[in-house]
Design a protein around this nucleic acid. Structure first.
Lengths: 234, 234
DNA sequence: TCGCGAGTACGGGATTTCCCGAATATCGGC
DNA sequence: GCCGATATTCGGGAAATCCCGTACTCGCGA
């Protein structure tokens, strides 16, 4: 499965993300703010949290990110998830009871956000308070939190992990045209008929596209062309 | 290619979405509000707009949704896109000059939102005003608009029109495994060697995956599997 | 318990794709 | 003008894919 990486311990500009989360926490008056982003291409997860060091270590050591119901549900949801609406499963009790021992409340919200590559981010905020004040806090800040989640995910995904994927290969218009038709399910002969050329020529353009995309097969070229937004999968 | 469907002309509860957009328009003081959602499983796009009927017809008839740079860029972005930051391409001029003739300003923002199945929604707002007032409007409402975009997309995707269609295509684990290797550039014989089975069997799984994804070729199946986040481009 | 559909597995042969070759056209730079 | 790089065009033959068939297993509902 995926491996949990704490980017704050990695070299570079990572510290600014932790700092950003602390600013969000202080500005909106939460106890803690946490971001967890997953990169399915690399098979990794990147986390930044304001949680105490001990809980961070315990969470990582117990691999809670594999069973945490908060993450599981947010991964399948479009809208923000209030933790009070999560089903009281065994995993729920396991994680939240452990959290309580580290002084972390079970009152919180997790906001999912997604990018175009199946990359997912989750921004969680929590505060130990009563129902009434919690509702007021969330109602007041949910819009900003939504924007913050998007901004955070955008920044993390553009920081390093995805920059190589976003590099675009210069294909000729004919190559893109033929790749697009191929992704649409047309055979080389079909495309030849559509463009009124020989199917041999279609194959040459596909070969050229394969070479430029460093692909061994046309299927791989299609995958890479989609990843680079050179063509559209539909 | 994808076909643009105006759900407000379809039977059912569709009117409530149009009504909702009108409320958003009036509450925040925009000229127009538009939502466009794409369903990669069915390969369709569904739109609700407050634009005048003539522009709607013209846009649909000219199939502008296939070239509209607003949609193209929002489709690959995580964060909201201000139209002023879009590159002045031929398609840009084509669409926006046409829009101006229907009294629609080129000052606007498009907010992308995504679901877990590769479903994408875009909420656009526009208003004919000066730079200063526009910045103030957006700064004031961007958080709420973000929440509204999520809510709108969630509602549309969970409505009757989508709930039966938008379901993760049930591929077997073997099929996904083999699709993933195929997207990684392996031939059927390569995959057979990796999995210690006959290349004939690999082909059967690929054929089965093609049928489930309604694809005529393996390349098309790869494209659709990526669009639905069933596999990842490497 | 008894099909029945789905998943997994394999082979023969037709179809398609892929690798080799080659030619012409276009276009920017010396 | 000339020259090299790239785009576009095409064909022969090898290689891979795709369509047809079969067979076994397993879970699930009649």
């Amino acid at each position: 499965m995926t491996e949990l990486i704490d980017l704050s311990e990695v070299a570079g500009q990572a510290g600014k993300f932790d700092c950003f989360l602390e600013q969000v926490r202080d500005r909106f008056g939460f106890d803690h703010v946490a971001y967890l982003g997953s990169n399915p291409v690399a098979g990794t997860m990147h986390g930044y949290v304001t949680y105490p060091e001990e809980w961070k270590r315990h969470y990582t050591h117990q691999a809670y990110h594999l069973i945490d119901p908060t993450l599981r549900i947010a991964q399948r949801s479009i809208a923000p998830i209030d933790w009070s609406r999560i089903e009281q499963s065994d995993n729920f009790r396991l994680v939240f009871c452990a959290a309580r021992e580290f002084g972390i409340s079970d009152r919180g919200v997790t906001i999912p956000v997604r990018g175009p590559f199946g990359d997912t981010g989750m921004l969680s905020v929590t505060r130990d308070t009563d129902e009434h004040e919690w509702r007021a806090m969330i109602a007041h800040s949910i819009g900003d939190l939504q924007s913050i989640a998007v901004h955070m995910h955008d920044a993390v995904m553009n920081s390093d992990a995805f920059s190589n994927v976003l590099r675009r290969t210069p294909l000729s218009s004919r190559e893109i045209e033929i790749l697009q038709w191929t992704a649409a399910g047309k055979t080389q002969q079909d495309i030849a008929d559509i463009l009124n050329i020989s199917h041999r020529t279609v194959e040459v353009h596909l070969r050229s596209a394969r070479e430029k995309l460093f692909s061994l097969t046309t299927a791989q070229a299609i995958a890479r062309a989609i990843a680079q937004h050179l063509i559209y999968p539909i």
